Computed example of a mutant assay.
Amino acid sequence: MKKRKIEIAVISDVHLGTYGCHADELITYLNSIKPKKLILNGDIIDIWQFKKRYFPSAHLKVLRKIIGMASKGTEVYYITGNHDEMLRKFAPTAMGNFNIVNKMVLNLDGKKAWIFHGDVFDISIQKAKWLAKLGGWGYDLLILMNSFVNWCLIKIGREKYSLSKKIKNSVKGAVKYINNFEKTAAELAIENDYDYVICGHIHQPKKEIIETKQGSTTYLNSGDWIENLTALEYSFKRWRIYHYSHDKLSPFFVDEDLKEMDMNELIASITEQAEENGYNYPENPTNPKDGDDDLLDNQGFFKDSDGM
């Protein structure tokens, strides 16, 4: 199976070591992409829950896969979150292509992206960590109960149901917290002239342009691999939200954003990436030589230089 070549992939809130983690699905996703940069935006390993001594082989395979990607040339950045905060004492650390950091700033095609987990905005974590941990255990128990409910629903031919999503969307305090989180992150990004602000933490995948009197920024959240099974991907100078449930193994450019992209800009982006991947153009584009293939195969993947 060919891998999709993308510039950046961002995942967060995997919570390895908990019952709700969808490790097998994450491995499938990681096996389908070949990013230049893989950003792990916090709460990848749930160190808070290690006392349960629950760490199945699929969870270990995720770590092996990430290390394997780093050994094969992918730049991996592990941004610390609150559930893996013990790693913060090691930041910043670089081991080959594997880096541990608390936050990072990237220059993407002339635009600045500010990336951090987002727990810095959570007062309960800053002021009452025991309460936050209690909430984490309660959330894990809810996910475990939800797994049993969904098993029963599947047996009777019904669709899965998310208890945690229902609670979040119906409790006014939860909705207000999420809105305040997004607004605060955006306002700080605008004040510091960042074009993108990228977070995790709240398990709510989102891409939205937020405007204030001081300016605008694009707020992005990578979601999680507990409920939503989402990631952020950057390529063709565009960000998109990847949804495992309906984007599984689909080409990157099948994206609504690209419909709004200027055709010349799109062609330039494809050309740049094709040249980086070793594609050799014919000397006369209007009269290609025998044996020259199209730029993309029928699945939307860039062909290698040998046409495969």
Score class of each variant (00 low, 15 high):
Ile143Leu: 13
Arg158Ser: 07
Leu153Asp: 06
Ile154Ala: 14
His203Trp: 08
Lys172Ala: 11
Tyr196His: 05
Thr218Tyr: 09
Val175Met: 12
Thr212Met: 04
Lys165Asp: 15
Val149Met: 07
Tyr196Val: 04
Phe181Trp: 03
Glu208Ile: 10
Ile190Ala: 03
Tyr177Pro: 00
Ile210Asp: 06
Pro205Ile: 11
Phe181Gln: 06
Ala174Arg: 08
Lys160Gly: 01
Gly138Glu: 06
Cys152Asn: 03
Lys183Tyr: 02
Thr184Val: 04
Glu211Ala: 12
Met145Gly: 09
Tyr219Arg: 11
Asn179Ile: 01
Lys155Gly: 00
Ser147Met: 11
Val175Ala: 11
Trp137Arg: 04
Ser147Asn: 10
Val149Glu: 03
Tyr196Glu: 04
Ser170Lys: 03
Leu141Asn: 02
Thr212Lys: 03
Gly138Ile: 02
Asn180Tyr: 05
Glu191Thr: 06
Glu211Leu: 05
Ser164Gln: 12
Asp195Val: 01
Glu211Ser: 15
Thr184Cys: 04
Tyr139Phe: 10
Lys172Gly: 00
Lys206Phe: 04
Arg158Lys: 15
Gly157Lys: 11
Ala186Asp: 01
Gly223Phe: 06
Lys160Val: 06
Lys176Arg: 13
Leu144His: 05
Leu229His: 13
His201Gly: 03
Cys199Phe: 01
Leu220Pro: 07
Gly138Met: 09
Asp140Ile: 07
Asn150Tyr: 00
Ile209Ser: 10
Asn146Met: 02
Leu141Tyr: 06
Leu153Ala: 08
Ile190Glu: 00
Ser147Lys: 13
Leu142Arg: 03
Ile202Cys: 02
Lys207Phe: 01
Asn228Ser: 10
Trp151Tyr: 08
Ala186Ser: 15
Asp193Phe: 13
Asp224Gly: 09
Asn192Tyr: 02
Leu163Phe: 11
Ala185Met: 06
Glu227Asp: 14
Val175Phe: 05
Asn180Lys: 14
Asp193Glu: 14
Trp151Asn: 11
Ser222Lys: 07
Tyr161Ser: 05
Asn192Arg: 12
Met145Lys: 05
Asn221Glu: 08
Gln214Leu: 14
Lys165Gly: 09
Lys155Asn: 02
Ser222Met: 12
Val175Leu: 12
Tyr219Trp: 07
Tyr196Ala: 05
Gly173Trp: 04
Gly173Glu: 10
Lys213Ile: 13
Glu191Arg: 13
Thr230Leu: 09
